[in-house]
Design a protein around this nucleic acid. Structure first.
Lengths: 410, 410
DNA sequence: CACAATTATTTCAGTCGGTAAAATATATTT
DNA sequence: AAATATATTTTACCGACTGAAATAATTGTG
């Protein structure tokens, strides 16, 4: 459908695949395009039609893709009509799970990426021990399947997104604000309680993935996603791939110091960005200025500012400027193609976005080339789960593609 | 020789090479190892001996590598002795050039990477127009060749390192502090004045490359090099490759804001790291405190501090802390394996390094995993040119390897 | 010294992915 | 129906790689 999706480099995960790579690339290309002909796949992948034919053959045999009956009639066409291919969305479903403080949010999508349904499973505790958490995930999954009338066997994979530091390759959790205990190997717990291949990842990374695949990051090779929530997070995509750092604890944008020996942060350090623009920082600032009485939530502050309260305006204004400086630092360091600023909290007035952008521009090293684009957007709560689902699809695709082409000549 | 060099991933530059990749990898492996047998190459590259044999055949035919007579006798050995291979250092030479304010520094190395000689060509002006600069480079090259008794035809490639923003792939210079004019296509100028393939790159990138290949960064896949000079620069190596950003203006570590609306920087912005730890910042601070009279150079400040001057000590101390915070930001963002802090200016006392490290630790997000290693080292002025030479070797290797294996069966 | 043992390298035969070109399929236009 | 156009498949072939077998060059041994 959209041309730009096609030109997007396919995500290559170099797990253990040798010659299944091509098939995976083709599969991902078809999924990204929605519906596409073999010829166009060849163009998009800069490969020969013959190669595409054979790859599609294997995928077709395996039932992962299908030929759609109706060729799209864009006006009159000469020549043999193209046969459109789509991913067979019905074969598998996968689930994406986001662990939030108050609830587990879950999205089930088909193998094609199409949304099947969502589910919210409330949590009584915002922090749990690892096994309890895994069990809650299982319950949430069961509940979602029940609500969606989907047997759990149909779920071919699951990705859990949660805040904190972790090793995604080994399902090892170093630390998470949602989990009472650190340094847990989640592998055994998952194996014990969840009946399908399950992966974990940092939640900000998953938002980045979602934006890269479906959102404002589509088509960019190097881009950043900044998430403004209770805290401030970041996902880094370089070279079309998530950059995770060496120990799995990078992208800690919220704890970038933007003030030497500045305000105290939750983390115990001083001058962290979060201590200036995090929710609690804004609430604290407002409280300091006028006594604790009225201001209790971000929404309160925004409302006050809107109704002319200059103190509240000043608080938001300063936060916008600080954020602008911090984003400028990102631009100066990473020189990305694009940055998505995604906030899940109530919408600020445009005025503060303008302030942020002005500050950003003022603090960016000048080059002729234009600044990277910045998209500020409100983040649907489900975007996190969607990112997780996207991740799950990717991983499950690898699993399914592996070893095709052997049983061809049967 | 050294085992760790072997395991190092070879640098893959995906220029236009299709199947010459293997030969290039073998060549780089041999160069990295210094002297190595086919069998060990196969092990290092995780490839079959047969493949290595054929790749070496082509390289041997082309005269790029040679078999050395003497197999290394590590004690008694059974079986057929291995035939050691080395890069034929004599076939080509390449030159690395660093444009500094006061001089052009030049290093000539053989195709094996062995240093042939260095040369310093003084500059009268610290800024020149583009063509004048290229002509100076040519003169410096001629002078070096003359001094080293090397005909200029032997120089098979040249890399020019200079500060600023540029597009290395297209030899396009956006801006440089060494050049009076911005937005120049250096290609034609180079073609007109320099008689061999010539490449340009940001100087901090080249130091990063040098450290990656020869220095403290050897064997790391993700690491950073911070250069402290008149200004503060950075080179980023991710996934064994230089990360350049989208517009070629990333890694501007010196202009990371570490103080919201802080001290004024040369660049006109406020709160830049450079405005706190750059040479001129230290001199300015010292001058402010005590009148302009005595303090004129960094060496003066260091000397004063060493002789007990508490004001000078305070200046250095604060710079160390600021630098520690800035490095902490890098750790929090990139989570690299290692950081090299390279300073070309006079050596500071260990005390300030300790202060910097302590501040770094205090401002890093805590994880179980240990902090990335930090190497603080004085940077030989020639390291810049060495990095440039390393880059030139890499590029020339690609040129030379390309299209081998055709004239095999003659 | 002949021969066994050992290790390095090369040769050989075969696999596999990929491609260009030719063949085939299915339209539209005339 | 013929010409034309475009999509896809088939065919023939290339080239990189590999495992296994063959060959080479040593040392150790009776």
């Amino acid at each position: 459908m959209t041309k730009d999706v096609l030109s997007q480099d396919p995500v290559l995960i170099g797990d253990l695949d040798a010659r299944d790579h091509t098939r995976l690339r083709v599969l991902q290309c078809i999924r990204a395009a929605g519906e596409i002909s073999r010829t166009d796949i060849a163009k998009a992948l800069i490969s020969s039609p013959a190669t595409v034919t054979s790859a599609c053959g294997a995928l077709l045999d395996a039932g992962l893709i299908a030929e759609t009956a109706a060729p799209p009639s864009e006006g009159v066409q000469r020549g043999r009509p193209r046969v459109m291919l789509t991913v067979n969305g019905a074969v598998f479903a996968v689930a994406g799970v986001k662990i939030a403080r108050d609830a587990i949010r879950l999205m089930v999508v088909g193998f094609q990426g199409q949304e099947i349904g969502t589910h919210v499973w409330p949590l009584l505790e915002s922090r749990m021990d690892p096994e309890a958490l895994v069990i809650e995930v299982r319950r949430a999954l069961d509940a979602a399947c029940a609500a969606l009338d989907l047997p759990i066997e149909r779920i071919a994979g699951l990705t859990i997104g949660l805040p904190g530091f972790l090793n995604a390759d080994e399902n090892f959790l170093h630390w998470s604000s949602s989990v009472t205990q650190g340094n847990v190997d989640l592998g055994p717990l998952i194996a014990a309680h969840i009946p399908c291949p399950t992966f974990i990842d940092n939640d900000a990374n998953l938002v980045a993935k979602a934006e890269h695949l479906f959102g404002a990051g589509r088509g960019f090779h190097n881009f950043l996603v900044v998430t403004l929530e209770h805290g401030v997070g970041m996902g880094i995509i370089l070279n079309d791939q998530l950059y995770r750092g060496e120990r799995g604890c990078g992208a800690e944008f919220g704890h970038m110091k933007i003030q030497f020996e500045g305000a105290l942060c939750q983390c115990g350090q001083r001058g962290c960005l979060e201590a200036y623009v995090g929710d609690y920082a804004l609430i604290r600032d407002s409280g300091t200025v006028r006594g604790q009485s009225e201001i209790e939530t971000i929404a309160d502050i925004i409302a006050a500012a809107r109704s002319g309260d200059t103190l509240a305006q000043e608080v938001l204004d300063r936060a916008s400027r600080v954020l602008g400086v911090a984003l400028a630092n990102l631009v100066n360091l990473f020189d990305p193609e694009h940055i998505v600023v995604a906030r899940s909290r109530p919408k600020f007035d445009q005025r503060y976005v303008d302030t942020m952008m002005a500050t950003l521009r003022r603090n960016t090293v000048e080059v002729d080339a234009p600044l990277p684009g910045i998209t500020v957007r409100n983040l649907d709560e489900m975007m996190w789960a969607k990112g997780a689902a996207a991740h799950a699809i990717e991983r499950v695709s690898i699993l399914k593609v592996r070893g095709l082409g052997v049983a061809d000549a049967v």
